[in-house]
């Protein structure tokens, strides 16, 4: 189990290698990539902020929960912080399991659950403004007419 929280560029090979073992016939690597559009807005770049000490711990817990649900899997999670340009990787989750089904399932589980409890926030800077995704002002940005 490997957890990385960093302001540096994430390296998919390093995280994938961490779960690539002789007993694992299936290895899945998911990349979350900064997208150039969101809800009709042209995105310029993103900024990620974390409560770092707790985020590290909560990422670890997501990995532990995945390992509890799919015993025997290997999992590595990397999350980037700070300013990310379009096309840069913000999240990497690599899972390894004897068979592909478990590797896919555990990877999808971890991707979904990171959004629930891990104290990391994303600020989207778009043409004409900025918004903390998930916040009240986010709702306002989605419906400027109201």
């Amino acid at each position: 189990m490997k957890i990385v929280l960093t302001r540096d560029v994430l390296d998919a090979d390093t995280l994938t290698s961490a779960v690539q073992k002789p007993e694992n016939g299936g290895v899945v690597t998911f990349l979350g990539v900064t997208r150039n559009h969101n809800e009709g807005r042209k995105v310029l770049y993103l900024e990620y902020e974390a409560y770092e000490e707790m985020a590290q711990q909560e990422l670890q817990r997501v990995a532990e929960e995945a390992s509890r649900r799919w015993p025997g899997i290997d999992i590595a999670i990397g999350h980037r912080l700070g300013r990310l340009e379009i096309g840069e990787v913000s999240l990497i989750i690599a899972t390894g399991a004897p068979h592909r089904k478990e590797a896919f399932a555990a990877c999808a589980f971890a991707v979904d659950h990171i959004k629930e409890t891990v104290p990391i926030w994303k600020r989207e800077v778009f043409a004409g403004g900025q918004v903390w995704i998930g916040s009240e002002e986010h709702a306002e940005a989605q419906s400027p007419a109201t």
Partner: peptide, 12 residues
């Protein structure tokens, strides 16, 4: 005590 607004990390 940490104030934790709705989180939005992870994948797009």
């Amino acid at each position: 005590i940490a104030i934790i607004p709705p989180v939005s990390g992870g994948a797009p």
